[in-house]
């Protein structure tokens, strides 16, 4: 708990917290604007109204979240490396893996808040804009959980990468490469590509149905555990020299 408070205090002026909140707000605003401008076109698509609501907007929202995750993950470790603050942390009676865990948790909670904000907008649109009787609350909740769970591999991967490179351009470059290659590969049906955390995150956006894919949920959870486990192990065993 103490470590978490310390980590939150370190975030001051870094912009990590506003950045992810902004991704949430922009995503929500995008949904409103899209439905305001293109409501009729969207609802005339040959898809169930709930599928339209969730999958047609998610592409853009997901890209905002992905961008937020990449940049925020780079920032939470960049502040440690910039003034070599992390060297001091290693010389203080604090657990460095615990610090890693707290950074991870802070980003996770922020991403969760962003996704909640975005889905609250979808809730509002669903209630007021979808044809009467077609809005289903449980589908929305399930999709919210699904988009959060499928975003976690990318988040845990990015925290891992940014904790390993002193130069922020490295994790940023890896994040951009992950984003671009993810975009290129997202439509492939090769299951092996699901090892790519960005591909996993893109899956709900390229699907035509808002129904969660249980296989992808399982893979997402496994990858999240794997990447965060690796990050914690490295924080414990690889020293900063």
């Amino acid at each position: 708990m103490n470590t978490l408070i310390i980590e939150l205090r370190k975030e001051k002026r870094t912009g990590v917290i506003p950045l992810l909140l902004l991704a949430g707000i922009l995503g929500a605003a995008y949904a409103f604007v899209l439905f305001f401008v293109r409501k009729d076109t969207l609802l005339n698509l040959p898809l169930a109204p709930m599928d339209v609501l969730l999958t047609q907007v998610y592409g853009m929202i997901m890209i905002l979240n992905m961008f937020g995750i990449v940049v925020a993950a780079c920032m939470v470790y960049n502040m440690e490396f910039k003034g070599t603050a992390i060297k001091k942390m290693y010389m203080l009676p604090i657990s460095v893996p615990k610090m890693y865990l707290c950074k991870f948790l802070i980003l996770t909670v922020l991403l969760f808040i962003a996704i909640v904000l975005q889905n609250m907008a979808l809730l509002k649109i669903g209630i007021s804009d979808l044809p009467k009787g077609t809005f289903k609350m449980d589908t929305l909740l399930k999709f919210t959980a699904y988009s959060f769970i499928t975003s976690m591999p990318a988040l845990s991967f990015m925290v891992l990468v940014s904790s390993r490179f002193e130069n922020m351009w490295m994790p940023l470059g890896i994040g951009v490469a992950g984003f671009l290659s993810g975009m290129a590969l997202a439509n492939s049906s090769v299951r092996l590509l699901l090892l790519h955390p960005f591909v996993v995150m893109l899956k709900p956006a390229v699907a035509m149905s808002a129904q969660p894919d249980n296989g992808i949920v399982t893979i997402s959870m496994a990858e999240t555990l794997l990447f965060s486990g690796m990050g914690l192990w490295m924080a414990k065993h690889l020293r900063y020299e």
Binding site: T14, M79, T84, P93
Partner: peptide, 19 residues
């Protein structure tokens, strides 16, 4: 070693909390 985004006092306060 210090956090560039914090003031001198805030930096020391981080260490103080850890200790």
């Amino acid at each position: 070693s210090f956090y560039t985004n914090l003031t001198g006092r805030e930096n020391l306060d981080i260490i103080r909390r850890i200790l």
